[in-house]
Design a protein around this nucleic acid. Structure first.
Lengths: 325, 325
DNA sequence: CTGAAAGCGCTAACAA
DNA sequence: TTGTTAGCGCTTTCAG
């Protein structure tokens, strides 16, 4: 940095200002310094900057499972958004475990500017305590004291159930994930508010979990099901086919998330798409980059849309109103 | 740190030694210092440590595409291995692009202890130059000047082609990915060495790419194909089904990577499994943690195995020797 | 608007 | 085996 200072004929402190608060530097000086920076290919030392109290230029992204395609896509979006803001991102896997979440937040908090927690399960108080003065942002879980982006879970349930009803289905089930998830609770409430739908809660939100749910579906004479996510939907779909059922004729399945795999299965999976890229971008934008800036809206709910890849009326009954063949 | 020093009645420098070179400190002192560390819940400041020339405790992991399930799984493995070594990991997406790779390596190099590059496409020289004094490790690409872990590509081709031949297939195609990939070149050579197999090179290694390949397959009267990876295999499989073919009766498909999705498709996909966790672990273990340590073996090749989920002989011909129904 | 000077918390010679 | 002493490269008051 002092090299740059010499070359542009200013004091080292001025170079620092050019980098951190360009608005207080005369335009002419700004130009000269920038020129020197370029000629010398100077790049600030992140460790020193951190030590002296500045930004680290790093944000943390914590996801329950990196191998889960939904979270992989989310991480990709977060990474891209952070890159645009000039930040690097550190990742860690929390394994859907509250204790691990706390431990990891503690471990990373001191060395990052902010942490984005995706679908956290630990208590807000515990997380906040572990974070100390490091900023937190939640994705897919609402909280009063932490800025958050969520996907409207009630809308997911409504869209999916409506879809089924319009096709003429009358025996519809909504399956939720583990009760520790915020989204499970939301879906449960939405389903109950809707009435006249069968609810299966606390299911394992995986491919295998989906397969395990089929029995209960059959027992309850269900003709249409709203799965907790695409992985589970695919599991249900596969188990149904293995069981000799025809999908969607005997059992209509709607997933959620619109992971790539949903379009690849056959039959392709109808799903309620979450705007994953937007989720990631919003999460990053919720970070208070200027320590003292007024908080931006700290609670964003993103809309979803249904992607219909595969629709039929229930077998024994013609639909009252059919949207498409 | 000086608090800890006071509390344990030693000099601050000794605390530093306890943390960095415990072997030169008297056991009794070690104990006292550790006790103080715990009581004070002291945690070293990573920025300061970095500034003073020590480890950063961070490694970088660069993958072509975070949303690709193979790389997501690989990243998960790398993250887990790094976590075990007490390191955190920074990620970035290189988008299979040489220029982006160089740019990202430049951006991260100064702030990490080492960088693990997965399936890099940029030149070794360029990468090395961008990395400066930062250590590099390659995954899925061999290089003379850079420690690397690879999956044995020739073995993949051999296993898959053998599998098809044993089932009685005689019109076998091997499809490779973009020619900029090290693995594509390896597979090409392996296929040529094998002889009597049809080669389709430089295909798009995605689901859509697989679909596009079907035409060439049909034109060449192929009954069995070895795809570049599972995504492509799934694409071929799907296109074949859409085209009215029966899989595997009309067209037998083998993929590679054994991503989760391979087991979920129907029919399930036979694939050559790469030991992803081991890949990640090995990559991390290849990092020279002690600056001056003698290099460990710097070129590791990992074996693969075929996972048979779905086999049949070609339609018009009974197999000479059939391994299973 | 810019220069001067004081650390941030740690590692690494060097001395004892 | 431990204490002493310099910085590492930057941000930030405080003057001017």
């Amino acid at each position: 940095m002092s090299d740059v200072a010499h070359r542009s004929g200013v004091h080292q402190a001025t170079v620092s200002r050019v980098l951190n608060r360009p608005e207080v530097v005369k335009t002419e000086t700004l130009r000269r310094v920038h020129k020197a920076i370029e000629e010398l290919e100077y790049a600030p030392h992140t460790g020193a900057r951190h030590l002296a109290g500045g930004r680290t230029g790093v944000i943390a992204a914590f996801v329950p499972d990196l191998a889960n395609p939904f979270f992989a896509a989310l991480l990709k979006a977060i990474q891209a958004a952070a890159h645009n803001m000039g930040s690097r991102v550190m990742v860690a896997d929390t394994q859907f475990d509250a204790a691990t979440e706390i431990e990891i937040v503690k471990k990373f908090a001191a060395s990052v500017d902010a942490a984005v927690l995706c679908s956290p399960v630990a208590s807000t108080a515990g997380l906040l305590a572990a974070a100390g003065s490091t900023q937190l942002v939640f994705v897919n879980r609402a909280a009063v004291r932490v800025p958050s982006v969520v996907v409207d879970q009630a809308e997911i349930v409504n869209l999916a159930v409506d879809h089924h009803r319009q096709l003429g289905h009358r025996h519809i089930a909504v399956v939720t994930g583990p009760s520790s998830y915020w989204s499970s609770a939301q879906r449960l409430r939405a389903a109950q508010r809707l009435g006249a739908v069968h609810v299966i809660d606390n299911a394992d939100p995986t491919f295998e979990g989906g397969a395990k749910v089929l029995g209960s579906l059959l027992d309850a004479d269900i003709t249409a099901v709203v799965a907790f996510n695409d992985l589970m939907a695919l599991g249900i779909l596969r188990a149904a086919v293995d069981h000799g059922l025809s999908v969607p004729d005997d059992l209509s399945v709607v997933g959620s998330d619109n992971i790539e795999m949903a379009a690849m299965s056959s039959p392709a999976l109808t799903t309620v798409a979450a705007p994953i890229d937007e989720l990631g971008q919003t999460a990053v934008s919720l970070i208070n980059w200027q320590t003292s800036a007024k908080k931006s809206r700290s609670r964003v709910s993103l809309p979803t849309r249904l992607i219909d890849r595969n629709s039929t009326a229930p077998r024994t009954q013609r639909p009252a109103q059919q949207t498409r063949g």
